[in-house]
Design a binder for these strands. Structure first.
Lengths: 218, 218
DNA sequence: ACCGCATTTCAACAAGCGTTGAAAAATATT
DNA sequence: AATATTTTTCAACGCTTGTTGAAATGCGGT
């Protein structure tokens, strides 16, 4: 069995597919476009990945495990560094979000495209339920469980709705639509990840505390 | 020039296109699918709307003016009812969001589909910058301006980033992906609009106040 | 130098796409 | 009742799509 050194064309197909799928969605991209941008024959995508949907899944899964474990590690680390009282809401949210910022800040456009693709999938009524669950549910559950401990007395329902709001704010940030750039007249730039997360974290933490505050009166 | 009574088939095409575009996106839907679901010949869509892209725009614009003025009216009403000090952050956000809840609660699935389509467009790096600006920018500016008054001393940059988070949370809610349903084990339902907005409003208001708080120290 | 296997290209397919011009049907005008 | 206009269908076009089988190329083992 030959070790078959990593053929660069295979990766190039994944890279281009990642970029185009993130920009135009699954149906907005043709295999021929991908092949052309990758400098490769059309049939090569089918040879390596099978059907178009399989290529889509391959793109989705290529970085999923790495991203998942990075976020889970961050959560564990913040739990370990916190005392017996456990980490604060800010610390948990920070652990949930910062690995994404770091990925975007590597300068590797692949990660930015990948996260924009995740945003596309997560916001889609069709793809979201079909693809997000299997890979991200356990991570989200761990995160929610940590939040439950940090918010004693909070109702589960409230925590889930707050998470929903967090997920939405994050998703739009990942999508990198550039809308905020125009709206703010250049004062905010979607590509300024640090500013985005620096504002998102206290925003979300305050929301959690307001809605899930101790005396859970409504 | 005949008055040409409203042909019902034209509206049926719009309704079906609205529903399918919201679910699968622009490229995920064919004119033949739309025509079939509407019980109509393929050519009829071209006759009424021209190219496929024109139909997409027609769907987008059909309800845009109505929605925009409803939200603007709500903003004016809350400004009028408030004293000289102007409305609070909660009141402004409420005015921004409640008309959407009301539209979703009419029971007319058309409005739900339409708002899911808006979510699709707003979250798309391709369609967002292309379609959202022309129709929604003035509304958002009015809303931001009101927030500026309600948050004296806040930096514009902070306000815009907070609006970005609000927009994200709202977008995911409009998309109705149903992810929260599964995650929460049924405790939260995406179709329970009242619960969604009841949680979103205090969440967002608290975020604004935290990030744009009076002593704008960071 | 030859062989076996993985990789890549070539060529072509059947199906479905958006679009269009002309015919048919329905509706309005006179 | 006859005519003009709008609405709808029919039939077809040129093109692109995803996919496939066979041929060509590259490459490590012997």
């Amino acid at each position: 069995m030959t070790k078959s050194r990593q053929a660069p064309k295979r990766e190039r197909i994944l890279d281009v597919a990642e970029e185009l799928f993130a920009l135009r969605g699954y149906d907005g991209v043709t295999l021929r476009q991908i092949a052309k941008d990758a400098g490769v024959d059309v049939a090569l995508a089918s040879y390596h990945f099978g059907k178009k949907l399989d290529l889509f899944n391959a793109v989705f899964e290529r970085r999923a495990a790495h991203l998942n474990s990075a976020r889970l590690d961050a959560l564990k680390a913040c739990q370990a560094s916190a005392g017996a009282a456990g980490p604060s809401v800010e610390q948990i949210i920070e652990a949930f979000l910062r690995p994404l910022e770091l990925a975007q800040e590597t300068g590797d456009p692949g990660w930015q495209n990948y996260l924009a693709l995740i945003a596309y999938i997560n916001n889609s009524p069709y793809w979201g339920p079909r693809m997000m669950s299997k890979l991200f549910d356990s991570l989200v559950s761990a995160f929610i469980s940590a939040l439950r401990d940090a918010l004693p007395g909070a109702r589960d329902e409230d925590i889930y709705w707050c998470y929903h709001n967090l997920s939405g704010a994050l998703t739009l940030t990942l999508a990198q639509t550039g809308r905020i750039d125009k709206l703010s007249g250049g004062k905010c730039r979607s590509a300024d990840f640090q500013a985005a997360y620096d504002h998102m974290i206290p925003f979300v933490a305050a929301g959690f505390r307001e809605v899930c505050g101790r005396a859970n009166g409504r």
